[in-house]
Amino acid sequence: MSEVIDDEGSLTLVSNDGFQFVLPKKCAFASKTIRNMFNKNSGYIEAKENCVKFEDMRGAVLEKVCEYFIYKHKYSGYSGQVPEFQIPAEMGLELLTIADFLET
């Protein structure tokens, strides 16, 4: 099955406590999981609605994930010194499971 992915425009990520984050698709596609959802051929409803709801993600964690997407988009391919991405220590493990799920 071929990939038909449109990375123009933006999408919305929703946390389980109702926070919404709107960000460019290009950035969010740093996650392979989200990218696969938006493959038109795989027929996910998320692709039609341009909106992904994460039932097991708190707003605070999803915010950090979005921050990472922007960070990655900004610095990938940049040859200079890249600033470190800061994660609060207490969020480390939770974010790790989520990063594992998102394949990012």
């Binding site: 990938s76 220590a89 493990l93 990063a99």
Partner: peptide, 22 residues
Amino acid sequence: TSNVKSLQEICINTVAKYIDDV
């Protein structure tokens, strides 16, 4: 090779840094 680490790597480094508190 890549200058931007994956989120998993960053998380693992953070966890490893604070491993005594986990």
